[in-house]
Computed example of a mutant assay.
Amino acid sequence: MTGELFPDAPTPVGDEVLAPGAMLLRGYAVGRAEALVAAVEEVQSRVPFVHLVTPGGHTMSVAMTNCGRVGWVSDRRGYRYAATRPGTDQPWPDMPDVLRELAEEAARRSGFPDFDPDACLINRYEPGARMSLHQDRDENDRQAPIVSVSLGLPAVFQFGGFQRSDRPARIPLAHGDVVVWGGPSRMRFHGVLAVKPGDHPLLGNCRINLTFRKVF
């Protein structure tokens, strides 16, 4: 399917096994990056990026928006998924086909043939933004994979064990790289070190991260 939809897409650089149920697909999204960014711009034109507040009262350094059946939100009441945008009765924008197709194809390539994402969390990292080590625990389905797509500035992905104290591997991610983890690796701690300044030809001085989730 990828070759039919994107005939000029380069062959991915290679796949790397990170752990049982976890794969790094180097360069997998490069050939469709412009279409992905255009889809992100359409979503954020309807639901702009915001810096959410954690239950502890801290403002996240990463800005976020969502698309899909549900969206992930955070405030003083906690972390959760919601069918409507905070403060409104409006649903989130539909997940664009180009996003959904990429997520499903990457999951299938990584051994998860039935992945059907409910949500796409769109994170914008400007220089200095980071994501501390955490587990994704707000989904009812904790076997289906997380599919994470990197666009723009490079970043260092931390992929740890099942305890926060486990020392994580530090994995450099470049524009177009995709990480997939599920099944036996689904509950591993992970995060992103602070993004360094730069100038990417497509996204300028920022990194966009798409994370696809099966919530229900």
Results as ranks from 00 to 15, higher is better:
L25N: 02
R26S: 12
Y28D: 12
A29G: 00
V30F: 00
G31L: 03
G31V: 05
A33Q: 10
E34V: 13
E34N: 11
A35K: 11
A35P: 07
V37Y: 09
A38C: 06
A39K: 05
A39Q: 03
V40N: 07
V43T: 09
Q44S: 07
Q44H: 08
S45E: 09
R46E: 15
V47K: 00
V47N: 04
P48H: 13
V50L: 10
V50K: 07
H51V: 05
H51P: 03
L52K: 10
T54F: 02
P55S: 08
G57Y: 11
G57I: 14
G57D: 09
H58W: 04
H58K: 09
M60G: 00
M60R: 05
V62Q: 01
V62R: 04
A63V: 02
M64A: 09
M64V: 15
T65C: 06
T65L: 03
T65P: 01
N66D: 13
C67Y: 05
C67M: 05
C67Q: 07
C67N: 06
C67H: 02
G68M: 12
G68A: 09
W72G: 07
W72L: 09
V73Y: 15
V73R: 04
S74D: 02
D75Q: 04
R77W: 04
G78E: 11
Y79H: 08
Y79F: 10
Y79G: 03
R80D: 12
R80E: 12
Y81V: 11
Y81S: 11
Y81Q: 12
A82W: 03
A83V: 15
T84R: 11
R85P: 00
R85N: 03
P86N: 12
G87Q: 08
D89K: 10
Q90K: 10
P91H: 11
P91W: 08
D97W: 09
L99D: 06
L99C: 10
L99A: 06
L99N: 04
L99G: 04
L99Y: 01
R100A: 13
R100Q: 13
E101V: 14
E101G: 04
L102A: 05
E104T: 14
E105A: 13
E105D: 14
A106R: 07
A106T: 15
R108S: 10
R108E: 15
R108G: 07
R108Y: 04
R109V: 15
S110F: 11
G111P: 01
G111N: 10
F112A: 00
F112M: 01
F112K: 00
P113N: 15
P113H: 15
P113L: 14
F115H: 09
F115V: 13
P117I: 14
P117N: 13
P117F: 14
D118A: 05
C120T: 14
N123P: 03
R124T: 02
Y125V: 11
E126C: 11
E126T: 15
E126K: 10
E126F: 00
E126A: 14
G128L: 02
R130Y: 12
R130G: 03
R130M: 12
M131W: 02
M131F: 08
M131Q: 08
M131V: 12
H134N: 11
H134Q: 13
Q135S: 03
D136I: 09
D136E: 15
R137C: 05
R137E: 10
R137I: 08
D138R: 03
D138M: 05
D138A: 07
D138I: 05
E139H: 09
R142L: 15
R142M: 14
R142E: 13
Q143N: 01
Q143F: 02
A144V: 08
A144H: 10
